[in-house]
């Protein structure tokens, strides 16, 4: 659905990625990593300095008009709606622009306005809507022409929990019908809930594309296990633990999940003592971003230091 071959533009540096149809991809990375640039390249708003891009089999910057028919987009800095017009007036205009059949339009408008919760706002001018209300309408506007590809930049910013859930449901449903979605978000929980694949950008470099589990294993493999035991403390010398602290009958273990599993640790412990309580903390997706940021800072500090020398 989207192919980037060694694409460079602004901060993006030789990015290659292939997103198949039907995937919901979360584009993550710290602020300024190049996420919005990636989306703008994919829809043809920007042209690559180097490399090739194919979106839905088309060259986005050259075949814009054709591409737009099957594309739904939402960017923070691009207004979707005419502020002066009512919500329903805006959708009427979209019907005309995308040449949507009247019956299908009526059916879809009814469904989207109902599910995203803007059915009562239909006759209100867009300029009178709150940020959250406007965002709900904008999501509906991005979906009304049943696009095959959705590019969403921070789509749930300003949405309340109900609207977020409705949005997640819609995306999941449309995915089953073949919709491909690429979305950026700083809400890692949202990415976890919604996305089948994750693309990680760090300072313009495409570091990884895969499932959430794979990405966490690769970038933050360190799991933590806290144990409270009854009786003698176990001997864990043979395990490849990274960190091991003891406080009375409580143990805190950090280990690389690529080298040793929680099951292996527990098995060894129960052979020697009784476990009263156990808590395992697996890294969150947000930890990946934090870790990358920390690494970047460390790299920058090291460069500064070398330059001074």
């Amino acid at each position: 659905m989207i192919i980037f071959e060694n694409v460079s533009k602004f901060i993006l540096n030789s990015v290659s990625i292939h997103v198949p149809q039907g995937e919901t991809v979360g584009l993550i990375g710290a602020s300024g990593a190049g996420k919005t640039t990636f989306l703008k390249l994919a829809c043809g708003l920007l042209k690559p300095s180097n490399g090739r891009i194919y979106t839905m089999g088309l060259k986005p910057a050259l075949e814009q008009k054709e591409l737009c028919r099957g594309l739904g987009v939402l960017f923070a800095d691009i207004p979707v709606l005419q502020k002066e017009d009512t919500v329903v007036g805006n959708f009427e205009l979209l019907r005309s622009i995308y040449q949507i059949n009247k019956d299908r339009f009526d059916q879809d408008y009814h469904e989207l306005s109902d599910r995203l919760g803007f059915v009562l706002l239909s006759d209100r001018p867009v300029r009178d809507l709150s940020l959250g209300q406007r965002r709900r309408v904008e999501i509906g506007a991005a979906l009304i022409h049943r696009p095959g590809l959705l590019l969403l930049d921070e789509p749930t910013a300003g949405l309340d929990e109900n609207a977020k859930q409705a949005f997640y449901e819609l995306i999941r449903e449309r995915r089953r019908e073949g919709l491909t979605t690429i979305l950026t978000s700083h809400d890692m929980e949202e990415i976890s809930k919604l996305c089948s694949r994750i693309a990680l950008l760090d300072q313009g470099k495409h570091l990884y594309y895969g499932t959430e589990e794979q990405i966490k294993k690769r970038f933050t493999p360190m799991d933590t296990m806290q144990l409270e035991v009854e009786g003698r403390l176990p001997d864990l010398e043979d395990l490849p633990l990274v960190r091991y602290t003891v406080d009375e009958n409580r143990l805190s273990l950090s280990y690389d999940s690529n080298c040793v599993t929680a099951a292996e640790i527990v098995k060894l412990v129960v052979q020697q003592t009784v476990i009263k309580k156990m808590k395992i903390r697996k890294p969150e997706l947000a930890d990946v971003i934090v870790r990358l940021k920390t690494n970047d800072k460390a790299e920058n500090l090291s460069v500064d230091h070398e330059e001074r020398e």
């Binding site: 829809c43 814009q64 008009k65 737009c68 800095d77 691009i78 995308y98």
Partner: peptide, 13 residues
């Protein structure tokens, strides 16, 4: 400046 022209570009008209 308002991003309105980008909106036009993203529509098939």
């Amino acid at each position: 400046r308002d991003g309105g022209f980008d909106r036009f570009i993203l529509r098939p008209r």
